[in-house]
Amino acid sequence: MNIAEFFQLALAIIWHGDHDLIEVVGLSLFVSLSAVGLAALIGVPLGGLLATARFPGRAVVIVLINALMGLPPVVVGLMIYLLLSRAGPLGVFGLLYTPTAMIIAQMVLILPIITALTRQTVEHLSRAYDEQLHLFGLKPFERTRTLIFDGRFELLTAVLAGLGRAMAEVGAVIIVGGNIDHFTRVMTTAITLETSRGNLVLALALGVILITLTVIINAVVVVLRWWGERRYGLD
């Protein structure tokens, strides 16, 4: 079979909507979106605070968070594995090899990305807003909240960067999820498995879906940001 034939068969699998395929795609989306949602809930306020608060050691924290953006997924997977394994401090919750463990691993991976990008965005906005917000007499927390709200369209990009990393991630989720069929198998782990098995058609079908979803999510965010900038743009 040549590459064109592989693609034809892969598209046929997608077209017929194989149940297993849908299940894998559904779980992938659930895990990645949950991880991004949780990371955004923590990372956006944290990044905002880092941008506006002044405290001893702030520069060290910023350097550390920037460095954590490049965390190796397998190392994160291993750390989460150790925490969640029976002998680990969180072993009592029995989360290892569950989608929850995969969400935790992805969240740990993308939290520094969302935090660091939020910090940059809010700090940039803060330079323009500083005097005006002072004159509104806002408390530090209110100031941060205002900057995050006014930077909401730029922050979409930060969240998108996190989502991109989560969707493409394989090392950590395979360690803590185990790639169990019908339970913790997601697109990236399934692609790895099917490729090693020689089932290239199914791997390719999953790859096409993964790339298509990534493009669609990116397009939606780009349109949202474009709309926001046009409507509420910056001076």
């Binding site: 323009a128 807003y129 005006q132 004159l135 509420y232 743009g233 910056l234 001076d235």
Partner: peptide, 15 residues
């Protein structure tokens, strides 16, 4: 501070 009505030379419009 909110009792000081200061219109800046280049006021920032909130988005």
């Amino acid at each position: 501070i909110t009792r000081i009505g200061y219109v800046l030379q280049k006021p920032v419009m909130l988005r």
